[in-house]
Simulated assay, not measured.
Amino acid sequence: MDIFYSIQDWVISAGASPWALLATFALCIVDGFFPPFPSESIVIALAALTVSSQGPNLIILWAVAAVGAFIGDQVAYSIGKWIPVKKIPFLNRGRGARAYARAGALLLSHGPVFIMAARFIPIGRIAVNMGAGSIGYRRSTFSVVDALSSMMWAAYSVAIGIGAAHILEGHPLLAMLAGIVGGIIIGVIVSHLITFLQKRFFPERYAAAEKAAEEWSKNHLDGGADSPGTTHL
């Protein structure tokens, strides 16, 4: 994480420089398949800097973040498609394993909503996107949903940065911190909201998905088959 903080400090200090945008683009791609690099904080921080005319153009920042996020998600999908989950350390044990198992099961029942919501949850999006690749989720559908969610995620990150900077005008560091914390909170809220809606309006499907997640977790992570099958969504 020390490396990430060093990169983050450098990007923020670059401000309106084209190098800051290039670094943001690269980090958004890496964040799609490597969890220690949460790109939200970079996008939020740069957006906050624009309020004091020290950051990049907002439209360009949004476009760079959205395209980078889309490419990163596509890489994650490809990794899930071609590399067995047991060879991916952060997805074969603990929280990552549970997230991956649940993601695969829920993708089979209501994929588009789940893919879109997961984009706002750092570890969740990696598990979902790799899960989509591993279960054979149709790439054309995944790409359309992912494009929409990447644009929404980038807009939300930029908006949080601007809002935090206006509310805390004159205190740029506090604005950046508030924006980052806000992003984390919203991600958690989205996660819990999706779970609540699933339980409230689709109880049978949610229960089935939970059961499937448990069975898949046992089979997939304890020596069973590498995939529950192919979905044609």
Rank of each mutant, 00 (worst) to 15 (best):
V158T: 02
L49H: 00
K211M: 00
G223V: 03
A47S: 15
P56E: 09
I115G: 04
V113Y: 11
S140T: 12
F34P: 02
L58P: 12
Y206W: 11
S150E: 06
D73G: 13
S41L: 10
G224Q: 09
A26G: 12
A213F: 07
G163I: 07
Y137N: 00
G94I: 02
A69N: 12
F202Y: 13
A23M: 09
K218W: 15
P36Y: 00
A23G: 06
V113T: 14
G15I: 10
D2H: 08
R125I: 01
S149P: 01
A26N: 06
A209I: 02
I42Y: 03
I135H: 01
Q54T: 01
G163K: 06
G224P: 10
V43I: 15
M116D: 09
A20M: 05
T24G: 00
S217G: 15
V85K: 09
A76V: 05
R205A: 03
D146T: 15
F120G: 03
N57D: 15
V43M: 08
A45T: 05
V67S: 11
T50S: 14
P38M: 01
R95Q: 13
L58M: 13
A20R: 05
I79G: 08
W153G: 13
L221V: 12
S191D: 14
M152T: 14
H220Y: 08
V181M: 12
F201G: 02
R139L: 04
D222V: 13
P35K: 00
A118W: 01
F120T: 00
R119Y: 04
L177T: 12
